[in-house]
């Protein structure tokens, strides 16, 4: 143990002095493991695999990805907190979805029990209507929502997930009764998409990337995107510029087990920092169309606290959380 600490601090020093290159021998993180709290193939899994590849290319040993799916990632979170405590070689991917899952599942383990490392990427959400819908702008939607919240059936992903939270935030910002939100969760992106395209629900909410093709081909009309300002290459007005003061990113981040000492924490922060700033990671971002939302360390910790407060408030307003 002692020897490893020396090693880790040496590594942190090496990083601090900037003598970290491609040829540098080994991140001191021997036997690095990244937990993806989801099945293979999804966003969290792909984040874990991409990060592990980039870190391995930079010399981290091991770099295995473990899939621990279940319950919006809270099964993986429980493993991180109970079984990986104090281990300086373990990372786990998480995101906004896990925050909602912790609340709705009344999970005994929470994010503030872990060591925050960094927010990595994110995706903004779109609000869409079928091409034939009478709703042309967000203001039309807001007016309808105010008049009769029940008449606006939103279709989207799982209950308490990012799509649901955004629907709640929009209703609240529009001055409608959040408790009367009519949100219809579908299992899997395909079913929600079909329900919107077939006109079975009034509006749909999803990550932009998932429905980008249907928006571009004109089968869906995007009313707004949930980013704070317009995104390059996406011709959709933001909620904010249309007078609905809401912005929301479905962020993905990386966290570490509880009980790490400063040297362990700094080593992980350094290793992730180096990986995120590498060209290989930039290539991953463009390939996968992920928006870079890198935010390391304590700032990320603060963001988690703020997002948690906002999510709790909305989910309580909706009635999903008592």
């Amino acid at each position: 143990m002692k020897r490893r600490h020396v090693f880790v601090s040496l590594f942190a020093m090496a990083l601090a002095t900037g003598c970290f290159g491609m040829a540098a021998p080994a991140l001191a993180l021997d036997d690095l493991r990244i937990i993806a709290p989801a099945k293979p193939g999804g966003g969290w899994d792909q984040t874990a695999r991409s990060l592990s590849e980039v870190m391995a290319a930079m010399g981290a040993k091991g770099g295995t990805v473990e899939n621990v799916p279940g319950a919006g990632g809270t099964v993986g979170l429980a493993q991180l907190i109970d079984q990986e405590k104090g281990k300086g070689n373990v990372l786990m991917v998480n995101g906004l979805v896990m925050m909602g899952a912790i609340l709705t599942n009344k999970s005994p383990v929470t994010l503030d029990m872990t060591t925050p490392i960094a927010r990595l990427t994110g995706e903004y959400e779109v609000i869409v209507v079928p091409a034939a819908s009478e709703l042309k702008t967000v203001n039309d939607l807001v007016a309808k929502l105010k008049a009769d919240p029940g008449a606006v059936a939103f279709g989207g992903g799982s209950a308490g997930g990012t799509d649901h939270i955004l629907a709640g935030l929009i209703a609240k910002a529009a001055g409608a009764d959040v408790a009367k939100l009519n949100y219809v969760p579908f299992s899997g992106g395909g079913e929600a998409l079909a329900a919107v395209m077939g006109g079975h629900v009034v509006a749909g909410i999803s990550g932009y990337g998932e429905w980008a093709g249907q928006i571009k081909s004109g089968e869906l009309r995007a009313l707004a995107i949930s980013s704070p300002e317009r995104q390059a290459g996406i011709d959709i007005a933001t909620l904010k510029e249309q007078g609905v003061d809401v912005d929301l990113a479905n962020w993905r981040a990386i966290i570490a087990p509880p009980g790490l000492d400063d040297a362990q924490k700094n080593a992980l922060l350094g290793a992730v920092d180096a990986a995120v700033k590498s060209d290989a990671w930039k290539k991953v971002l463009t390939e996968k169309n992920w928006t870079d939302l890198y935010l390391p360390g304590d700032d990320f910790g603060k963001l988690v606290a703020a997002e948690n407060a906002r999510t709790t408030e909305i989910l309580k307003g909706i009635g999903l959380v008592q």
């Binding site: 279940g70 099964v75 599942n105 308490g160 969760p185 999903l320």
Partner: peptide
Amino acid sequence: TDILTGQPRLVFGYP
């Protein structure tokens, strides 16, 4: 998890 409300059913405390 009940898909419409996110509430656990017959889970008996096992995540």
